[in-house]
């Protein structure tokens, strides 16, 4: 089986702070990581490889420093890594991003394409399904688990609000994976050594199969009208008093707001 996993390098959003004076993001010192949902997608691919034997390729689209997560993927055990980077891709929204990735994926033979459900910097959950549409492949999103029958059929467990659904799909298909699906393995020591000896293929516009008008800023139907720091409302009353008095204040407030009679 041939598996491709799309991964993305993202800022660790739990470490981001806002500058209270300027209202802008402080990115300095914020670590870049492999997006958590993507990492679980990669782990799912590597587990399929462990169980059934598979050839696993990772692909990322991003600036030169995104090389780091491809090295990390090598150290976890992938067989091939592709770095998609070109100025023509710059300024892409989710649709233009999905076109660039789909363009690259047309050049790769695969039975299963895995993406994370969503990336923590944007939380849109759009790129996976959009790629599936461009490649005219079936999709299953919000994946918690997947079993392969050894021939061509996958049985999938999809998370929904009330519980889960079991679905059946034949290869080739696209899935988007939740970070709760598994615990990604650590890089192995041998893997870390190999990671820097293995080749990362760098692909640009000329290596992929896509209509240029669908790429980058030009290919993006959405644009950011404005971005701003979340406006916080003025702070309310604050009391530092003994427990009994505090409870009294709370009850008074609840009565004031007609929550208590």
């Amino acid at each position: 089986m041939k598996i491709v996993v799309c991964i993305k390098q993202v800022p660790d959003t739990t470490e981001i702070k806002i500058d209270p004076k300027t209202g802008t993001l402080i990115r300095d010192g914020v670590p870049s990581i492999m997006n958590p949902d993507d990492k679980s997608g990669l782990e799912m691919a590597l587990q399929l490889k462990d169980e059934n034997g598979a050839h696993v390729t990772v692909i990322t689209m991003g600036p030169p420093q995104a090389d780091l997560i491809l090295r990390e993927a090598y150290a976890m055990g992938v067989d091939r890594a592709i770095h998609l980077t070109d100025r023509k891709f710059a300024g892409a929204d989710t649709l233009a991003t999905s076109h660039a990735l789909a363009g690259a994926l047309r050049k790769i033979d695969f039975d299963l394409l895995i993406t994370g459900r969503q990336a923590i910097d944007g939380d849109t959950a759009q790129v996976g399904p959009q790629i599936a549409e461009h490649l005219d492949l079936p999709q299953v999103s919000y994946l918690e688990d997947l079993k392969f029958d050894g021939d061509k059929t996958f049985t999938m467990k999809r998370h929904i609000e009330e519980g889960y659904q079991m679905l059946e799909v034949e290869a080739p298909c696209v899935v988007t994976v939740l970070s709760s699906a598994n615990n990604p393995r650590y890089m192995s020591v041998g893997g870390i050594v190999d990671a820097y000896q293995n080749e990362v293929e760098v692909w640009g516009f000329n290596e992929i199969e896509v209509d240029e008008k669908n790429l980058g800023l030009k290919g993006s139907p959405t644009s950011v009208h404005k971005a701003f720091a979340r406006g916080l409302k003025p702070a309310g009353e604050l009391y530092e008093v003994e427990t009994d008095e505090a409870v009294g204040i709370i009850i008074k407030k609840l009565k004031e707001k007609f929550i208590l009679n």
Binding site: P11, T13, I16, L25, D121, A227
Partner: peptide, 8 residues
């Protein structure tokens, strides 16, 4: 960005 920023 994880709720750190709002974008229109």
């Amino acid at each position: 960005f994880g709720g750190n920023l709002m974008a229109t």
